[in-house]
Design a protein around this nucleic acid. Sequence first.
DNA 1: CCAAAAGTGTTGAAGTTACACCCATGC
DNA 2: GCATGGGTGTAACTTCAACACTTTTGG
Lengths: 245, 245
Amino acid sequence: MEINKIPNLSVDCVVFGYDTETKSLNVLLIKRYLESASKDKVLVDDYVLTGYHVFENEALDDAASRVLKELTGLTNLYKKQFKAFGNPNRLMGKKDLLWIENEKFNLRTITIAYYFLLKTEEVSLTDNKYQAKWFSINDLPELGFDHQQIIEEAYEDLKIKCLQEPIIFELLPDKFTINEVQDLYQSILAIEIDNRNFRRKLINKKYIVPLDEKQVGVSKKPAQLYMFSKDIYDKMFQKNYLINI
Amino acid sequence: MEINKIPNLSVDCVVFGYDTETKSLNVLLIKRYLESASKDKVLVDDYVLTGYHVFENEALDDAASRVLKELTGLTNLYKKQFKAFGNPNRLMGKKDLLWIENEKFNLRTITIAYYFLLKTEEVSLTDNKYQAKWFSINDLPELGFDHQQIIEEAYEDLKIKCLQEPIIFELLPDKFTINEVQDLYQSILAIEIDNRNFRRKLINKKYIVPLDEKQVGVSKKPAQLYMFSKDIYDKMFQKNYLINI
DNA sequence: CCAAAAGTGTTGAAGTTACACCCATGC
DNA sequence: GCATGGGTGTAACTTCAACACTTTTGG
């Protein structure tokens, strides 16, 4: 790997993780902490997205994947480059300036923002060297740089995208129940969905395949498990040109 | 205006223009021409997107708007930042290298790509200092750098977007006929649409406002003119959460 | 047997697709 | 008066939205 980083170019990763148990759509953030030289004052103590500079000989997508692997150990996740952020004042908050002085990077840095989709429980955070932590999308902590805005725009993109492409299954375990899919849609979109209509709609899709399996270890009636078949989806997919303005 | 350009960061603009007369969706390109020092050989002779480096103290959106104004004189057009292109080898074609040697810019340049929507006839190209020219999206010339790919991705984004947001009207004159809208959709999407169904659908939208005016100067039956009311659209707009996977 | 979540059907409204002919105008 | 493009109606079908109760299971 190339060791020269491009001083004014970074990637930032909005990592969305869904927790099927708590029905919470989460974002993975890392701690930004800085004490004064004399160690008697906390100068910076907040959270930021995981991100890093792009290397001289590295593609943007590869930089994002590298950063994510570094934080979580995971590869081959759903990833989308959704926007570049590069306004001249995006790193100009008071704490940001203190931080940058310490870290020595370019005040005019452009970041290419990605979001990733995974299941919260896929990531082990014990002894994570970045003090990474999950936060509900509805209850984010104080965020450094322009990362609040980046998260908001990622979330907007996710909301639109999950209505049109089957990316929802990236956030669910391989085997899931219909009600889990419904809960997830409700978490992402912050809406209520009629269970009967939703169930019928999903079960009628040929790429939602019922398994010969039911939930185990639940204390009530165990639900039917299903899987998503990308093969079938791809095979039967055809663009629809419904003009919906 | 700040005069220091960021050497490794540019914006590129895919300018889509629709020509109502010829029913052609066009892209505006500028000439890239370079002779050998002895002027006896043409080293580079192709087309590229309009673009330029971002200045040190300039927002990305502003850079795109500046570049577009410089080329066309126009401001306040529909503009969308749709993707960043930054692969290490995106400027590494033979002709690209010759060109860059001459122009002296960074071999590893990241570009933030935008597309703009306007009417072809809004732009006057006489004596254009960049030798700008319109090309049909279906008949593009040889393109420098990775601009073929950038145009393709812009076009894909436009296809999706025009089904969901009323951006189609950015490509049409203020007063248009229903059939002009249909022709435009057909040009963009490369599909056939049933005229009766399309007409009914559009006329039923409250924000498609019939005017007390008909076409003039046509040699056959003049058609009813309509306008798009963004005010009404915004007022009645409400997100629909139709899950369409 | 009881608490909890899973699972089930019908109806009216709205939207989509398919399809062929007459009309108004300028020349 | 005729060539050209503008404009119109209906029926079958599909999809969507609204709505409440029964079933199954583990404990």
